[in-house]
Design a protein around this nucleic acid. Structure first.
Length: 894
RNA sequence: GGGCGCAUAGCUCAGUCGGUUAGAGCACCUGCCUUACAAGCAGGGGGUCAUAGGUUCGAGUCCUACUGCGCCCACCA
């Protein structure tokens, strides 16, 4: 084995083995509990970015954990057709050839789109594999595949028949860039600096006038009323009267509506029901008509008279000039307001009246709210439930038709003869109402999110009643960023409750956004994105995964740092070398015949492991300590994973492997390992092997590649670590007393090391040590000479009880369980020694003061748990004993 | 306007049920190429846990207020 770990050589090879073996495949199995995660389907246009990397790392950790834990764990992968995004790409590609959608027509366009999907749709799938994702690729789905298509069409029809999907002429958001309607959440509001124009509308006979304020003067062309508040004394008398729109010279009436804020502007509002959602509602209430003055592609239409054909901005400029010229512009003031933009293309979104399909949300939202309220679905972290409720409780109808070609075509058929609309899965041969033949299908497609909302059941077989659907639905877990709770999670819950009558998943695990090192969102326009594939190439998928999940709280944003990935890479190397060390002692190289690794154990369940038997009769202090600690880390990691504290869990594994196993156990195993006692050697090898195996298993969900790679090198290991079973605590290895003793020994070793550093004892210099253990620690310390030798450079340990034998130029080491003296001869520096002792006295004294204060407090003594009080007492006693020794020492120094 | 989050070491962040002397990584200082690992080892410095109150025997942790950032929703034209 090399001295350093080579992720490049290992990762692709290991993934190939996994894929070929079928370990990721899950089938309904009545003997096992199901566990299922459906992947948030990445867009076929997409390339793996840090958001995917994080999202899929979390899912893979959970799936691998559950798989090892005996669940039939299905991670169901797939991709999303991404209607708008993909169509934009195809249009762009065609533009390079100099052709447009209209040139090729619908059929040809769709051919191109499917072809495009064939070429690029698999790209992100391969990138997910690079990350180590253990998806069941045999079950890969696509939102526009045959099954998903059937699900979408059926749900649309069923909802239509229930009156929950309807067609209506209503105010919608229109993106002039995408040339399509958008739903409300597809509009992002951004603040822009603009102006507020005050415009005067005169009475036909000039007997009075009323001034309104507007941020969008071009919409004056579509004005059909001026509204005032019914209680506004200033305008009460004017309600019902007419005014003339300046420039346009059209008469409109003054209406009263409570929507108007008296305090804002002039307290009078121009009403443009055709292009403003609030005005639309005022129009509905007051019976004022709507006039559309914009075209679909962002120009003024024929209703704009002399301004027709201009873009909206050109019109604004021209119209303001005309107002000025006509003397109707009262004043202009700077004004910052929010402008809606398309979340896909960034174009300013226009609101306009249009014939579209909608989902009636209020009745559907009810059960979707209820199921979260009563705990049927839990959000982790819980605070996101509030976000969800807030949105759901104020839900508005969802515009689902898109004026695009790439997507699920709306199964509605129009009769041009009688106007009847027929909604069914295939084209009716003739109109069911009037018998007219030659119906016309709706040209539009459905919002992408309409189909992804069915993902948890459409992928499991719906509308068919499949075994998978019965076994895996409701799914267990949905992992996603908080930014798509509305887009996706809410819709899935709505459809799950409506279509399946059951919640689609038990838990929603919400994570944050991966930002750049400066805390900015990664974006194409900023060019600050980090390519996960580059990170994997440089440091390995394991390192990337580990860096993404450690050191941040669930649900909060994080920053990407190369240093963090590097440090995870260092951890890989650490594990690799620890394993290499163990394998050098137990592996084929060390024991070609496999016979000298321990006695056969007849009770061993895995016959392959019989050569590596831990022999309790040979337990030393360090063995008991590491096994006890192993129990602890198994408990903690399991608890953390069950509570979805993945970062904490990973940290625990890291600390155990590095700080306990590598820093202490391996070092302390060496004397016995290199000793002469064959039985003892075999036993230590067995412990090393056991702890290594358990560590790798604990590590596997987080760092699947290196844990699998190393595991497979271990003699007697199973075929794959994925089938090795999640570690469980072994109560035979509960050693509280020995763990305490070991920790005291570690404390002493640290104290000696500290002394050596402070007294400038050269590392190579071996020292002698006169050791006086506290009662109860005599045996342990007298047996620990090998450890003091190896870890603290102590050549010879003399256990003694009489201080008279201590030479003058020895330094003292005071630790809670022992006092020690190291004769340093010419290295002895009395002044330094005095400083050390005095420093230590100050520290211990403050500790004593603190403990005494606590113990004097009657409230503490009465109310604190007995264990806490006892700990405090023990500490105090220990410190008082130490203090006494320190004082004696100081005395002796003169 | 409504809601949410954050503030802890020079930097980026953890901190589970309120309970030892508040931790990690990186950075910094000192010393080591010790035969698993220099991508390493050992030792060290560095904190009034934003501020002010409160609850409690005990608060980084719970409550209230306040300050400063950030985000989401709503849209007073």
């Amino acid at each position: 084995m090399n001295k350093t770990y080579d992720h490049k050589a290992a990762e692709d090879r290991i993934y190939k083995i996994w894929e070929d073996s079928g370990y990721f495949h899950a089938v309904p199995n009545p003997d096992k509990p199901p566990y299922c995660i459906v992947i948030p389907p990445p867009n076929i246009t997409g390339q793996l970015h840090m958001g995917h990397a994080l999202d899929n790392t979390l899912q893979d950790i959970l799936i691998r954990y559950k798989r090892m834990n005996g669940f039939e764990a299905l991670w169901l992968p797939g991709t999303d057709h991404a209607s708008i995004a993909t169509e934009a790409k195809i249009v762009e590609q065609m533009a390079q050839e100099g052709i447009t959608k209209a040139d090729v027509g619908r059929e040809e366009f769709l051919k191109r789109a499917w072809k495009w999907r064939g070429v690029y749709g698999g790209r992100i799938v391969n990138q997910l594999k690079k990350l180590g994702s253990s998806c069941d690729w045999e079950r890969e789905r696509f939102t526009m595949d045959e099954g998903c298509n059937r699900a979408v069409i059926k749900v649309f029809i069923d909802l239509y028949n229930k009156g929950l999907v309807y067609r209506g002429n209503r105010i919608i958001n229109w993106c002039p860039g995408c040339l399509s309607a958008l739903s409300d959440i597809e509009v992002e509001y951004k603040e822009q600096n603009s102006f507020l124009w005050y415009v005067r509308y005169d009475a036909p006979d000039k007997s009075f006038s009323i001034t309104v304020a507007t941020s969008r003067p071009e919409t004056i062309l579509g004005d059909t009323a001026v509204a005032v508040h019914p209680d506004d004394e200033r305008y009460k008398a004017l309600v019902g009267k007419e005014v003339i729109i300046p420039v346009v010279n059209r008469a409109i009436s003054i209406v009263a509506d409570e929507y108007v804020e008296m305090a804002f502007g002039t307290g009078a509002v121009k009403i443009t029901p055709g292009h403003d959602p609030n005005d639309f509602e005022v129009g509905q209430r007051t019976g004022v008509p709507a006039i559309r003055v914009f075209t679909d592609d962002g120009h003024m239409n024929e209703n704009a008279g002399e301004f027709a054909g201009m873009t909206l901005m050109e019109c604004r400029e021209a119209f303001v000039k005309a107002l000025e010229k006509g003397g109707a512009l009262v004043k202009t003031e700077p004004y910052a307001h929010n402008v809606g933009t398309c979340y896909r293309c960034g174009t300013t979104v226009e609101t306009m009246i249009s014939d579209q399909w909608f989902v009636k949300m209020a009745p559907l939202a009810k059960p979707a709210i209820e199921v979260v309220k009563n705990g049927g679905i839990q959000f982790v972290p819980k605070r996101f439930e509030k976000t969800y409720f807030n949105w759901m409780e104020n839900i508005r109808d969802w515009c689902i038709s898109r004026q695009l070609w790439w997507g699920h075509r709306i199964p509605a058929y129009y009769c041009d003869n009688c106007g009847e609309i027929t909604v069914r899965d295939t084209m009716p041969p003739k109109c069911p109402k009037c018998g007219h033949a030659g119906l016309r299908q709706d040209e539009d497609v459905l919002d992408t999110w309409f189909s992804s909302g069915m993902w948890p059941f459409s992928t499991l077989g719906y509308p068919d009643d499949t075994e998978e659907l019965r076994y895996f639905y409701p799914t267990s877990m949905l992992v996603t960023g908080y930014d798509i709770i509305f887009f996706w999670v809410a819709r899935m819950i709505v459809f799950g409750m409506e279509v399946m009558g059951k919640h689609p998943f038990d838990t929603v695990f919400v994570h944050g956004i991966v930002r750049d090192a400066l805390g900015r969102k990664m974006s194409k326009s900023l060019g600050n994105g980090i390519d996960p594939l580059e990170v994997i190439e440089k440091h390995g998928a394991d390192s990337l995964r580990f860096s993404l999940i450690t050191g941040n709280a669930p649900g909060s944003d994080m920053r990407f740092f190369w240093e963090k990935v590097e440090s995870a890479g260092n951890f890989c190397n650490k594990i690799y070398n620890a394993a290499r060390f163990v394998l050098m002692n137990i592996g084929e190289e060390a024991n070609p015949d496999g016979t000298n690794c321990g006695e056969a154990n007849p009770n061993e369940t895995n016959p392959d492991e019989t050569n590596y038997v831990i022999n309790p009769a040979l337990f030393g202090l360090t063995d008991k300590w590491i096994l006890h600690k192993l129990n602890g880390v198994i408990d903690e990691v399991t608890t953390n994973l069950d509570a979805f504290d993945l970062g904490l869990a990973a940290q625990k594994v890291y600390d155990f492997i590095w700080s306990a196993f590598c820093d202490w156990y391996i070092e302390m195993a060496k004397p016995r390992l290199y000793g002469e006692n064959a039985a003892e050697k075999a036993h230590v090898r067995a412990v090393l092997r056991y702890v290594l195996i358990q560590s790798l298993k604990l590590l596997h969900p987080f760092m699947p590649f290196i844990s699998e790679e190393l595991y497979r090198h271990i003699p007697g290991a199973k075929e794959t670590i994925m089938l090795a079973g999640w570690p469980e605590r072994d109560d035979a290895y509960a050693f509280d007393a020995e763990t305490d003793q070991m920790e005291q020994l570690m404390e002493l070793i640290r104290a000696i090391r500290n002394m050596r550093a402070e007294m400038n004892v050269p590392p190579a210099k071996r020292i002698a040590l006169l050791l006086m253990p506290q009662p109860g620690y005599e045996k342990i310390f007298s047996e620990s000479a090998i450890y003091l030798n190896r870890l603290a450079g102590v050549e010879k340990v003399h256990i003694c009880t009489d201080k008279a034998v201590i030479p003058q130029n020895a330094v003292s080491i005071v630790s809670p369980a022992a006092e020690a003296f190291a004769p340093l001869d010419q290295l002895m520096d009395i002044e330094k020694e005095r400083e050390r002792v005095e420093k230590e006295i100050v520290r211990v004294q403050s500790e004593i003061a603190r403990a005494k204060g606590k113990l004097k407090n009657t409230g503490f003594m009465q109310k604190a748990p007995a264990g806490v009080v006892q700990d405090e007492k023990n500490k105090l006693q220990q410190n008082e004993e130490m203090l006494q020794k320190l004082f004696e020492r100081k005395e002796n120094l003169g």
